[in-house]
């Protein structure tokens, strides 16, 4: 700090009445002795008074609230609620991914690879931000060998058509209807809250879309539904009883349930801010 900066700091605090009695006396002695110090004080006083005239900014519109947003319960559990939502979304996305891997697994099939890649793409786009979600990705893929042919029988009836979803509509957003926007906001909002830390601002800005993320719930429904869709480009699942084959429906059910829970949380959140 230069001598001038030190002088300005003393004089600035003097102007604000933020000095102790002893410090104030010392500054007054300096003022008495030096014209330069007096000039500096005069300048700082002018800055302060000129800035005080800049308080006349007018709000461009009314910010009155149309409806009361939900209050934060004691203990700040709104943040915990966001974390829960994030967890549910991660679970839904992971379950959906595992389901897809279990259903379409066929290592030598180009078609299967295409669908699996698509699922991963959709998954990544679905759950932006949190590393926890990304971490689930390789974990999901690493499960694949457990579903080797023979342990579960799945079959792509129309393998040639399978890549279609990847080229056509990689993200299942359109099928998710009105819930997509809200879910997307929530997904981002949750991540935001988790990273915000340190200030009052750990809560995300709700109700303001910040990205084009697709909600895990929508993804879950779309991917879970595709194996039973008879349309072209989809995959038919033929279940043959035993082994890990039973895991696919269970995963689908889990994914759907978690997806539903996720959507319910989103709706509840939307009500809070409507």
């Amino acid at each position: 700090m230069t001598p001038l900066e030190r002088l300005e700091e003393r004089l600035s605090a003097y102007l604000d009445g933020e000095l102790t009695a002893a410090e104030r006396s010392a500054v007054e002695a300096e003022l008495e002795a030096s014209a330069e110090v007096r000039e500096t004080l005069g300048d700082l006083r002018l800055v302060r008074s000129a800035l005080a005239t800049l308080d006349d900014v007018r709000a461009p519109r009314s910010f009155a609230l149309a409806a009361p947003p939900a209050r934060v319960p004691a203990g700040g559990s709104l943040v915990l609620m966001r974390r829960l939502e994030l967890f549910v979304r991660a679970g839904a996305a992971g379950a959906a991914l595992l389901f897809v891997v279990a259903v379409v697994h066929e290592p030598t099939s180009l078609a299967t690879g295409g669908v699996a890649d698509d699922a991963v793409l959709a998954f990544e786009a679905t759950a932006p931000g949190p590393e926890a979600l990304r971490a689930a990705d390789p974990a999901g893929l690493s499960v694949a060998p457990a579903f080797e042919p023979g342990t579960a029988t799945t079959e792509s009836v129309q393998p040639a058509m399978a890549p279609a979803p990847a080229n056509g509509a990689p993200l299942p957003a359109p099928s998710s209807g009105g819930g997509a926007g809200e879910g997307g906001v929530m997904g981002v909002a949750g991540a935001d809250g988790g990273l915000g830390g340190g200030t009052d601002g750990t809560m995300p800005a709700d109700g303001q879309p910040k990205g084009d993320a697709v909600p895990a719930g929508a993804d879950t429904f779309a991917t879970a539904a595709s194996p039973v869709d008879d349309g072209p480009g989809t995959i038919h699942v033929r279940e043959t009883s035993h082994g890990v084959g039973g895991a696919a429906p269970a995963l689908a059910t889990l994914a759907v349930l978690l997806g539903l829970l996720s959507v319910l949380l989103s709706l509840r959140h939307r009500e809070e801010h409507s």
Binding site: E8, A13, E18, D43, L44, A50, L51
Partner: peptide, 17 residues
């Protein structure tokens, strides 16, 4: 707070001068 305020005012003082 005190030092940042002083530095900011010091910079603005240059403008006034």
């Amino acid at each position: 707070v005190k030092s940042r305020l002083s530095r900011a005012r010091g910079r603005l003082r240059e403008v006034i001068r």
